[in-house]
Nucleic acid binder design. Structure first.
Length: 157
DNA sequence: GCCAACGTTGGC
DNA sequence: GCCAACGTTGGC
């Protein structure tokens, strides 16, 4: 089992939107970056756990934990001419973009803010601090556990 | 609103 | 394949 961090802009689609979905499940679509695409397509599997991160807001923070419930399949929005994520260069025979289904597992009572992540020496190697623009990134198990600890989340995973 | 870091595009 | 120009992300 592996750990990941997914970013979202709460003004567009944040943890409260996910929480409001039927079964708290959504299709994580619209990823249009090749590095993130490769992770989605090749490395992210059912049961993997996700740190759900809010970017471009105040404060930026890890706000909860989600779980992968379906591994990669072609992102349907790439074929939809009316979608902002439409890609004319993609085809159903050779889809360019992929998505996974995720389910909200825990919403933190105390989000773990980026400032605090930066000041925790145990988290100094997090990809978040090195390649901040990547919207889907790997997380070490120790980092995942440390974030959970910081959120004062009682572990029942 | 600014800007650093990075990704993409397109001419050559 | 190189690289300049441009676009985007995201923290501050």
């Amino acid at each position: 089992m592996a750990y990941w961090l997914f970013k979202s802009e709460p003004a567009e689609y944040g943890i409260d939107h996910l929480e409001a979905e039927p079964q708290k499940i959504t299709c994580w679509h619209g990823i249009r970056n090749y590095q993130a695409r490769n992770l989605l397509r090749d490395n992210i599997y059912t049961k993997d756990l996700i740190l759900f991160y809010h970017s471009s807001c105040k404060p930026t923070a890890v706000v909860g934990i989600a779980k992968v419930i379906a591994s990669a399949y072609p992102d349907p929005t790439q074929f939809d001419e009316h979608s902002p994520y439409y890609d004319a260069k993609s085809s159903k025979d050779h889809p360019r973009w992929f998505c996974v289904d995720i389910q909200l597992h825990k919403k933190f009572a105390h989000p773990v803010e980026l400032t605090h992540i930066k000041h925790n020496p145990k988290l100094e190697n997090m990809v978040l601090l090195k390649q901040s623009r990547l919207s889907i990134q790997p997380v070490q198990e120790a980092e995942f556990n440390e974030i959970k600890k910081m959120a004062r989340l009682v572990s029942n995973l």
